[in-house]
Design a protein around this nucleic acid. Sequence first.
DNA 1: GTAGGATTCAAACGTTCGTTTGAATCTTGC
DNA 2: GCAAGATTCAAACGAACGTTTGAATCCTAC
Lengths: 227, 227
Amino acid sequence: MPLRAIKPEHETRTRILDVAEELFMQHGFEATSMRLLTSTARVNLAAVNYHFGSKDALIEALFRRRLDPMNAERVAALDALEQQAGGRPLAPEQIIRAFIGASLRMTEDAKGGGRNFIRLLGRTYTEPAKQIRALIGQLYAPAMERFKTALAGALPEVPLEELVWRMHFMFGTLSYTLAATDTVQLIAGCKPEDRYDAQLLEARLVAFLAAGLLAPLPQHGNVRIAA
Amino acid sequence: MPLRAIKPEHETRTRILDVAEELFMQHGFEATSMRLLTSTARVNLAAVNYHFGSKDALIEALFRRRLDPMNAERVAALDALEQQAGGRPLAPEQIIRAFIGASLRMTEDAKGGGRNFIRLLGRTYTEPAKQIRALIGQLYAPAMERFKTALAGALPEVPLEELVWRMHFMFGTLSYTLAATDTVQLIAGCKPEDRYDAQLLEARLVAFLAAGLLAPLPQHGNVRIAA
DNA sequence: GTAGGATTCAAACGTTCGTTTGAATCTTGC
DNA sequence: GCAAGATTCAAACGAACGTTTGAATCCTAC
């Protein structure tokens, strides 16, 4: 067979994962049937159950394939920053870039399906199914802890409890921005292609988030003071 | 029938809507079957189709019931602010409070189901089904335009294109914060009851968002300058 | 009290779902 | 080149889905 160049190691598995990323992003988990998925991927209906075990296991494999490297990249970026700073405290902007950069870079990977995954991921934080949220949380936890420590060092004047909330806000801004595809156009008629000028979007996000993280502490009538 | 105090006008309709709010929030639209819904609401299986026409029409009625008053409240709050300001420009914090106040007040309505709705709404911005997103956008559009104008007046130094993105970020922060129920606990072990101290949460959100909206304009290597 | 519209009811409709099965086919190691 | 494992295939499984039906029941107005 001279035409077959190289034998793909796990061609069926990979093709299922790629198509699942796209269809789950377009229609959601529940609304994507195995029949549509397997026919789109040009594999047999039973292939998903053979290679992954079940639809749920496919979803889990899908997240693990992307999320582990992405969070590893985040932590590595943070490590590099801290090493080259040599003990000096990092600027919050640097930490923010280390965090959001991995996501933004993946949105530029339209060909490889990375963009599909990022948009799928953004909507999954609010996914109803508990097990999916639990998986996401589990895959994120180590990187989260790492960034919490880093931000606490960069923002010593922000109490830890407040910082946790601000990280939460940051997380929300990022995931919503990357996941919502058309809602933004309802706020205003922005040219859709701007969304994928990742460089400009990153600058906008960093400016907004850095200001938010560094905001003066909130004053509230409640006498509860951060410990 | 002395025991029946008052005849509820649309008891079945209302009970279906209330239960739908709760179940859709817990399990999502697709995963909530009509059989579970109607049996939980203690109505006949055919009641949804009789009173609403279909499951999709029920979803639409559910959003209309809450979203129209909520956005009307937002606009009214903004009107009141501008009237009492008498021509003087508003502070961004005031506008933010007018926008997020309606949502936060509804999260305190645990009894009436408002909290269910807010959490459901937050996850619906990224809902896969196009028709649902379109409905949400349509119901939001007038209030959005109103707040865009108000913020543009309060932030004259922010170019309109940048402002639209920052509103987008604000929207994401709010919806994610109100929708995500347990993801925050993965960032850090924050006491869950804090989430529903609406007063404290509002102060935190306003501080974060006001700083973000007022942030210095982003500098990016790209020479594209806001028009 | 009785006609007539509104509502509720149990039952069934046809469809689609995720998964399983067992044989057929391909791939690999010797 | 052949046994053995890995993979693919067509077909079917039982269950659950949203919706429809037509009779039964309730409510209201006269």
